[in-house]
Nucleic acid binder design. Sequence first.
DNA 1: CCTTTCTGTAACCTTTTTGTAACCTTCTCG
DNA 2: CGAGAAGGTTACAAAAAGGTTACAGAAAGG
Lengths: 226, 226
Amino acid sequence: MAEYKILIVEDDPDILELLHFNLEKAGYRTLRAEDGEQALPLARKQNPDLVLLDLLLPGLNGLEVCRRMKGDPALQHIPIIMVTAKGEEMDRIVGLELGADDYIVKPFSIREILLRIEKLLGRRQQKGPPVLLKAGDLILDTEAHTVTLEEKRLDLTATEFRLLAHLMRTRGRVQTREILLDKVWGYSFEGYSRTIDTHIRRIRIKLESHQDLIETVRGVGYRFRE
Amino acid sequence: MAEYKILIVEDDPDILELLHFNLEKAGYRTLRAEDGEQALPLARKQNPDLVLLDLLLPGLNGLEVCRRMKGDPALQHIPIIMVTAKGEEMDRIVGLELGADDYIVKPFSIREILLRIEKLLGRRQQKGPPVLLKAGDLILDTEAHTVTLEEKRLDLTATEFRLLAHLMRTRGRVQTREILLDKVWGYSFEGYSRTIDTHIRRIRIKLESHQDLIETVRGVGYRFRE
DNA sequence: CCTTTCTGTAACCTTTTTGTAACCTTCTCG
DNA sequence: CGAGAAGGTTACAAAAAGGTTACAGAAAGG
């Protein structure tokens, strides 16, 4: 996965350092500018994926930087998060005149700002994985978190649901117990292997007459029937 | 497009003139009143599309004018922007006690005030997101902020309302606690997760015999029944 | 201010889920 | 055929999840 570049424009060195440190820790690359004059050329040269922009800056202030970026064809697609101490003004300004994509009020928590960054960055790539997994009469809806078999709703537990969803996603390909532990239970689980067999059984029971949808591949693992 | 009429209530002649001049330049028609006593009859007679109302007025002050307008069936739909020099008080007053739709603090820029006017006037025409959320006998009106179940009005608190509205908007799709915290409580909330469960319960109690409209998806989250 | 309502937290209870174990059946291959 | 391995079956106790109730501090309203 490509690393995201984030441009931080902030005149307070402490906050700049705080943001820089935490964003790098979270796996982003950072670019830094201490005023609006530096920010624009830097953005044009480095083409960051997102800009954190303080409202109050020496020289060219944040509002003006924002306006110019949104008016520049080369930069206008870059999401901007405004950072401000003045809680009141912002909700008005954002989205109206300026085109900033979000804003955050000081004092902010790191978690808060990471969430917003993720939201703006994530929005661009996620095509979204398939929501409906179908196999004949069996339909699994990952969004609604429901499973229907011949129009009848099946009641699976969370683990059973994840396991069946994984098998359906990889239909036709055997999944070893090791892989299933990894994909369905997550790396950290190192329990007894028969756990999987038990869960497979539980799913099969609920599939009633369609138990053969999940095939046992002796000596290897399980496979969802093609 | 029809021309908008804006009533300016302001005792300082300089400011009155400034506003009048700039609003006309921006394409609005203006009505002017210099105190609260004049303002109300004028509003009733001329039916303006918006009122700019100074807080400190001789005689009947701005707060009182606002209250009376919002209490008058013939006038209560007219958006009011309070204009004040006292930055501090206002965030309390607006929208809560008074029903003013926005406010602006002196000294204001003309650009700023035009933006707010546009926002309030614009709001009435744009279709916006769905206002009525219906699910069988349950009707939630996001604009009126009311909920009815089988013709009976339900009395939800603000948080309960947002939570129910979100679930209804995403009906059929499971919402994890994390998502609910984000969407209903906002990013900055980092509280204990059981908070959500408690609120779900409170809503369910109010739904009485229709508790099953909100389904629990064990190990995942909650889902509004399709 | 004072009162009422709302809201988040905590503690406790109930139900469901889940991992493990033990035992049984089937398959494989000498 | 028979032993051993692999997987199916059944059972169960610990853990987890959610429901329920209660309460205190915060917010709202008067």
